[in-house]
Nucleic acid binder design. Sequence first.
DNA 1: ATGAAAGCGCTAACAG
DNA 2: CTGTTAGCGCTTTCAT
Lengths: 329, 329
Amino acid sequence: MSRPTIAAVARAAGVSVASVSRVLNGLPATEEMAKRVQRAVAELGYVPDSRARSLKVGRTFQLTLAVADVGNPVYVTMMRAVEEVVSAAGYRLVVTTTGPDVVDEVALVRGMARGYADGLVISPLRVDDDLIKSIQECDVPVVVAGNVPAKAGVDTVRANSPKGILLAVEHLLTTHRHKVAFINGPVDTVPGTARAKGFTDAMKANSLQPVAQVEAEDFTFAAGRKAGGELLDHSTDLDAVIAANDLLAVGVMHELAARGLRVPDDVAVIGMDDSELAEQTFPPLTSVNLGSAERGRRAAELLLARIEDDTRTPRRIVVQPSLSVRRSS
Amino acid sequence: MSRPTIAAVARAAGVSVASVSRVLNGLPATEEMAKRVQRAVAELGYVPDSRARSLKVGRTFQLTLAVADVGNPVYVTMMRAVEEVVSAAGYRLVVTTTGPDVVDEVALVRGMARGYADGLVISPLRVDDDLIKSIQECDVPVVVAGNVPAKAGVDTVRANSPKGILLAVEHLLTTHRHKVAFINGPVDTVPGTARAKGFTDAMKANSLQPVAQVEAEDFTFAAGRKAGGELLDHSTDLDAVIAANDLLAVGVMHELAARGLRVPDDVAVIGMDDSELAEQTFPPLTSVNLGSAERGRRAAELLLARIEDDTRTPRRIVVQPSLSVRRSS
DNA sequence: ATGAAAGCGCTAACAG
DNA sequence: CTGTTAGCGCTTTCAT
């Protein structure tokens, strides 16, 4: 038994489909009319078909947030922020996972093209020309939470991770830590590149020589632990490590513990993202707050604005970092 | 400039829209025809409109997973499992958040009714008659990952948390811990109820007297910490605490540490869910594995099966727990 | 093998 | 204020 359509409701109420549609959309109608329609709707358990509706009006009232890995706590912060903004604006938010590969990101943007949602916020791990092209060609607005070249002409809101790393390095100096190592994620990713450069610059700016710099396989806990192992196999003389995100940081904290090194007494550890994990771990993790919540909020606002007016010139927002000092440093 | 439609492609290729549709859907056509269509598609950058398509064929090839809180790591485990199964079956998975209230859950199921997706896996925190009714009336299949009455006649896959708690209690006995307290989440939730009963039964079965039983405000880290504080304010003589999920467990671990109590030396801590957080925290958390991954997988399979055949009798799967012993106990 | 045309369920002119 | 009707973009008979 199939669902009732608007025609069934109209028949049941003894009115035209147009009138049903009007009542449902709050357009002017007599008391009497509204009553009849509402009763018929209730009786039949009628629910409008969102596809048909959006096919006609051209909008789905759905927005998509695409992230690389739902297991990364930084994304839950961002998700919460985006959700808050878009639902206040009357949109439903759905989240999808892209995975780590560009091709999947491109496929997502392409597929988004028609009908799935009215807009997309994407936080890509890797960016290439294909991705940028697919974003430009996408017929629904997309804003990227991350870094793409200015000439791409797309709305972006990104973090300032070099500045964030500078904050971390300076904090370490303040606490008399000079022998600092860096655990990065893959350098062929957008955040990986930015952080590699940021670390190098920050060290140079403070006339510090890096103890070591190791590249984890991805931005996960397991990779962090493994990279921490590699680091400690080679460099024993260090008193601080900065990790490219919180998951990585927690991974090295475990490896440190496994080798009998205490945090922060022997080695200070600083993460990045200041995600919920940072306060949940033990000791609580000092972490560079890259403004994930604000980035999510701003990205959502940008998206909403562009849906409103597609002709506005693309904006590039960068949100500034701060340091959340906890007990690991 | 609006997107090309199938009509534009047909015009560009000098063929009929029907032929374009056929080629795109892999139906028989001459080489020549296929070539022309494909070139036109490529030139115009044509992407089919999924709404129009699904309006016609009645399917969206999209499935939805609805969870209460994306910040709860147990859901990421489940999400990953669901994703794997449904994407292998050619569906796209989207995730939405319901929040903690039943009304929102109901609204979601109702709204799902037409056009958003071909099916729904929902993991409800709270269940009432309205929710069950909306699930039964929903015109797309929905399977619930959680506990609803058998008479509701819906596909479910749930955990056996009483059994899980029994495992935890027995493990504590083995390690000579007898003074055990329980931190539960809200008892007006599905998992809260099950776990309250499970704890009481497990203690009774082992002739143990609970030291205390406190109810946190929700299943979050912050609530766990707060509840831990309440617990420790009143009960000083305890050597183990079981928490209703990992987030809660980590919260009490922090409160324990704040009061100078060591884990596991002074107090053993056991969580539930065996989420990624359990191995990330320090010391790594012993946790009852409630089979989140398997539940996700089975739920997805059930959904797929029901989409295939809506007449099959509802199944109720329960997956058995195991204990992941780590260093916190 | 291909084209013409009907229609999926809905909204928005346009009449009345 | 209400009803009739033309499509939104697509797939799918039904002819050819």
